[in-house]
């Protein structure tokens, strides 16, 4: 795809994880540096010249698709967006997402996230059929969540999943963004508060903000998705005064 004209004397060594979920090791590869080179470029060079079977997932190479997620020097990042020159003289260690099982080399099995998305009910339930009449100021709030590229870096860094392994109890920040997107849609009529309180487990999040820090799309996951959802759960499950007011406001059943 691009010229691989190596600048004489300008080489970098990348330490790339090779192996699977059970065993593996870092392998050092020398890569000639090209201006503006990103980690994914370097991995492509390694594939073309040294290790044709080096497994790495990628698609658009423009940070739009969220495929090339991994960990560089222990930080969750997109390979296509991480430039080699940002590391100065530091070593570069390239690893797969390690919250999920490693299939091979830099590819992890992220199917768990898609399975949770299948369990997300109710889906979008609009109040009226389209065409909708909505103002820009009304949709701005959910458009932020629609920026999500499903790279799962937030899932990778979330300690509830990563360290405590509570995959059966908490769906992770990415699914919280997805739920927020439905929950706060100005046309939506359904409520997902009970789901959040039970299976999706928003109560397990302790708002440590790590997910927000790694989001390549700059979505304010903690502030705009998770905390507002926690407050909605509090409305329903932790606020006796609100519950009492709801009971008062609920229309009395009229006898026919």
């Amino acid at each position: 795809m691009m010229e691989r004209s190596a600048v004489p004397g300008k080489e970098r060594v990348l330490y790339v994880y090779r192996g699977d979920d059970y065993q593996g090791e870092e392998v050092a590869y020398r890569v000639p540096v090209v201006p503006g080179m990103v980690v994914l470029d370097a991995l492509h060079f390694i594939q073309a010249h040294e290790a044709p079977d080096l497994a790495v997932r990628w698609n658009c190479k423009a940070a739009h698709c969220g495929s090339c997620s991994g960990e560089i020097n222990g930080e969750p990042r997109l390979f296509c967006k991480t430039r080699l020159d940002a590391y100065g003289s530091l070593d570069i260690h390239v690893h797969p997402l390690r919250t999920f099982p490693i299939i091979r080399d830099l590819v992890s099995d992220v199917s768990w996230n898609y399975e949770r998305a299948e369990e997300l009910v109710p889906g979008f339930r609009p109040a009226e059929p389209p065409p909708f009449h909505l103002q820009q100021w009304e949709v701005d709030r959910v458009e932020e969540f629609h920026r999500c590229i499903e790279c799962f870096l937030c899932q990778d860094v979330c300690h509830v999943l990563r360290e405590h392994g509570l995959f059966g109890q908490y769906w992770g920040p990415q699914l919280m963004v997805r739920i927020a997107e439905l929950e706060m849609h100005p046309m939506d009529t359904a409520s997902r508060t009970d789901l959040l309180h039970s299976a999706a487990g928003v109560g397990l999040c302790n708002v440590t903000h790590c997910c927000t820090d790694v989001c390549p799309e700059g979505i304010e996951i903690t502030h705009d998705a998770i905390i507002p959802l926690k407050e909605r759960v509090a409305d329903q499950h932790y606020d006796p005064i609100a519950a009492w007011l709801r009971r008062l406001r609920r229309p009395q059943p009229t006898s026919p």
Binding site: N73, G74, Y87, D91, H93
Partner: peptide
């Protein structure tokens, strides 16, 4: 081996 490789830089 996977854990140990996480550098800090």
């Amino acid at each position: 081996s996977v854990r140990a490789a996480s550098a800090t830089a």
